[in-house]
Amino acid sequence: MKFVSRNTLFHRLDPRTKIGMSLMCACLIVLLRTPEGLLALLSILLATFFFVRPPAAYVRTLLYLMGTAVIFTMISQGFFYYFEPKTPVFTIVPENWGWIGRVTGGLAVYREGLIYGAVQSLRLCSAMVLSMTVVMSTYPSDLILGLERIGVPEKVGFVVTVSIRFLPAIIEEAKRILTAQKLRGLKGKGVRGGFRVLRYLLPPLIIDSLRHARRIALAAAVRAYTGERTHVRTLQFSRTDWVATAISAFLTIFLLFYYGVFL
């Protein structure tokens, strides 16, 4: 998941506008109480997501992530729903099943839990769509510059930049290590196999990342990095940004008043 170069209105917005919008959405994700409100929010976010013209692969990833989030939240809430009243849909371990029943206090899937889970998963889904839309439509350096302009320390910004830049390399490296293991006869089947693979994956990966980190530190030193710097890239907060911010603020307030606040 990374920046996709396109020329949409959303791409052209100042990163600070997008950060502001994200903060408003974050408030909504936490504060909105009713399923209708959360659905409205998710629809707006999805519309924005498609507005920035995502590649097909990203749409698939998003659907997959959202599906997983919905299913897992529903299952976990279905089992562990706490509030009363609750109606069991089906029972796995009845309460009167000897010691297992006593220890577990009975294990059942509750209808209210499933519904509660489905509603909660809307929050997760909204957060995913939001972050994907912002990452996809903002050039990383601009996002970081935006963060710095609203008061995030320069060094934090640099660490984020470097992580974004080098993370793919580390993932590639992990893949190569896994292939090398396979070629040397290590089989990763089952839980024990999985642990064995990790046992031999982590040491080279960590040591090499440390070596890499050391090289990066030296390279940053010879490029005079101290944490205080000027910037060639500039940010322009245009009229469009004001309008976009105003619309977002209006929508936020509207959703909160119309659908009620979760308190």
């Binding site: 990383p140 390279a219 710097r229």
Partner: peptide
């Protein structure tokens, strides 16, 4: 330095060339 890969900090060519100058706080 050795290993070019770890000396490129930015995602875009021109940004990386500017990186050192920015650190030197040039206008």
């Amino acid at each position: 330095l050795q290993n070019v890969e770890s000396q490129i900090f930015m995602m875009r060519v021109e940004d990386d060339v500017a990186f050192g100058c920015e650190n030197l706080r040039m206008p």
